[in-house]
Simulated assay, not measured.
Amino acid sequence: MPENVVPAHDQTVTHRYRIHYPAHEPRETDPHYRDFEAYRHRTRASAECQFGVDRVGDFSECGGNLELHHAHIEFALINAVDLALLEARYPGVSVVGEVGEWVNGSADNLMWLCEKHHRGLGGIHHAAAADWEAEHFIRNLIS
């Protein structure tokens, strides 16, 4: 091996930061929770883990039941959304009373993931964004 090549190695990575959640309704009593449940009911039969879909149908590293993930804005953050920023990317979503419907009932903000790729080790709620993206192209990157 040439001298300037770093040999293969494992590295432990830790992320620690504070998220500032605004006041919000409990999820089950939020008026837009019904939108989330309607989306789940409407799409469940054809649902697949988006990670496997992104890998062009390779679901070999998927595991567990399918769960819905809020892709861009989590439910608990609805009351802090800067509507001008959201509107710039998703035109037509800047109406205060309708942002909850978009967050909880829109294919633009919801994706199906298996438990492993949602909440598991290396899942979207666990890994840094760059590592999550790289994991699509590097098998067994995170353990």
Results as ranks from 00 to 15, higher is better:
P2I: 08
E3A: 10
E3C: 02
N4Y: 15
V5K: 10
V6L: 08
A8P: 06
D10W: 01
D10F: 00
D10V: 00
Q11S: 07
V13Q: 00
T14E: 10
I19T: 11
P26Y: 02
P26F: 02
E28A: 13
T29A: 10
R34K: 12
R34F: 00
F36C: 03
E37F: 00
A38N: 15
A38H: 14
Y39M: 04
Y39N: 03
R40T: 06
A45D: 15
S46I: 13
A47G: 10
D54S: 14
R55P: 05
G57I: 05
F59Q: 05
C62Y: 08
C62P: 07
C62F: 09
E67S: 10
E67M: 10
E67I: 02
H69W: 11
H69Y: 13
H70V: 04
I73K: 07
E74G: 09
A76W: 07
I78M: 07
N79V: 01
D82W: 02
A84W: 01
R89T: 13
R89F: 12
Y90D: 05
P91D: 07
G92S: 10
V93A: 11
V95D: 15
V96Y: 11
V96W: 10
V96D: 14
G97R: 12
G100M: 04
V103N: 03
G105Y: 04
A107M: 09
D108W: 08
C114H: 05
L121T: 14
G122Q: 03
I124W: 02
A128Q: 13
A129C: 02
A129K: 12
A129Y: 07
A129H: 10
A130M: 06
D131I: 14
W132M: 03
H136A: 09
H136S: 05
S143T: 04
S143Q: 12
